[in-house]
C-alpha cells in the first residue's frame, strides 16, 4: 500500500510541472514528422514491407516512441544519491529501497507516457488515417506498454546501483538505450532485419521494451500478445532479482560516519 502511495505522489510531482512536461513533447512531434517523411518516401513505390503497411508502420513507431520518450530519471537520482551519500537516508526509512525506486519511476514514466500516447494518436490519425482494430488491441498493448516502462525502470535501477563501483554510469545506459533503439525495434519492426538476426533480436530483453508492445498494437493477435507478455514476466523478474542482489551486495559497502 505504501508503495502505491509513493507511486501516486510521484504522479502528482510530475503533474506539478505540467508545462515543462508538455514542452518536452515537442521532441516527439519532431521525431514523428521526420519518421513520417522518411517512411512516406520509402513507401512511395511499395504497398507493404515485411507485411507492414505505411499505416501500420507509422502507428507502430508512435507506440514504440511513447515507451521510449517516457523514460524516467530514476537512474540519475540513484547515481546522485550514491555519489553524495544521501542513499543512507533511504536505507534507514521503512521501505525497501529498490521497490521504492520502482514505484517512483513508474509514477514518473506513466505521467510522461500519457501525453505522448494522445499526441501519437492524433498525429498518426491525421497523417496516415485510422489503424484497423485499434480499440481491440489497445487494452492488450497497454499492458505490454506498462511492462515496457517497467523494464526500463528496472534497467535504470540496475545501472544506477552500479554507481557503488563506477564513477559514471551514464555510458552504460547510453549503450542500453541504443540496444533498445536498434535490437529492440524502436526505429522499425525487427521483422525488417535479416532472418538470422531477427530470430535472435525478437527474444532479447530489448524487444520487450519496444517491438512486442508496438507490434501487439498494429498486428494484434493472441499469440503475439502472449509471447510479449511471457517475455515481459521473465525479463522483469530477472531484472528485479538482479537489482535486489546488486543492492544487497552494495548495501554492505555503505559506511556511515558521524551523525
Amino acid at each position: 500500500m505504501k508503495y502505491l502511495r509513493i507511486f501516486t505522489i510521484s504522479i502528482r510531482e510530475q503533474i506539478a510541472y505540467l508545462p515543462v512536461m508538455l514542452l518536452r513533447n515537442i521532441f516527439f512531434i519532431i521525431i514523428f514528422y521526420i519518421f513520417y517523411s522518411l517512411w512516406s518516401a520509402i513507401y512511395q513505390d511499395r504497398e507493404t514491407i515485411e507485411g507492414f503497411t505505411i499505416i501500420q508502420m507509422i502507428w507502430y513507431l508512435t507506440f514504440a516512441e511513447a515507451i521510449e520518450l517516457s523514460r524516467c530519471g530514476v537512474m540519475n537520482q540513484i547515481q546522485e544519491e550514491i555519489k553524495d551519500g544521501s542513499v543512507v537516508y533511504g536505507l534507514a526509512r521503512p521501505y525497501y529501497y529498490v521497490i521504492f525506486k520502482i514505484s517512483r519511476g513508474m509514477g514518473e514514466s506513466m505521467v510522461r507516457c500519457l501525453p505522448v500516447l494522445i499526441l501519437g494518436y492524433a498525429f498518426a490519425y491525421i497523417f496516415v488515417g485510422p489503424l484497423d482494430g485499434y480499440f481491440t488491441a489497445l487494452p492488450f498493448a497497454l499492458i505490454l506498454l506498462i511492462g515496457g516502462l517497467l523494464l526500463n525502470v528496472l534497467w535504470q535501477i540496475n545501472i544506477g546501483l552500479l554507481s557503488f563501483w563506477f564513477e559514471e554510469v551514464g555510458p552504460f545506459y547510453w549503450i542500453l538505450t541504443k540496444m533498445v533503439f536498434i535490437m529492440g525495434g524502436l526505429f522499425f519492426p525487427i521483422d525488417l532485419f535479416p532472418g538470422w538476426l531477427a530470430g535472435i533480436a525478437k527474444y532479447l530483453p530489448f524487444a520487450f521494451s519496444a517491438y512486442w508492445p508496438a507490434r501487439t498494437m498494429v498486428q494484434f493477435n493472441q499469440d503475439i500478445f502472449l509471447t510479449g507478455f511471457l517475455g515481459l514476466i521473465i525479463y522483469a523478474s530477472g531484472l528485479l532479482l538482479c537489482s535486489t542482489v546488486i543492492f544487497e551486495i552494495a548495501r554492505k559497502r555503505v559506511h556511515v560516519q558521524g551523525g
Partner: peptide
C-alpha cells in the same frame, strides 16, 4: 577522472555506432 573520461568517450563512440546498423539494414 581518467577512467570516467575514457569510459564516456568509448561509450559515446559505441552509442553512435548503433545507428550505422539502423541505416545499413534500412
Amino acid at each position: 577522472y581518467r577512467a570516467a573520461f575514457f569510459t564516456q568517450v568509448f561509450a559515446m563512440i559505441l552509442n553512435n555506432s548503433a545507428f550505422i546498423i539502423f541505416w545499413m539494414i534500412l
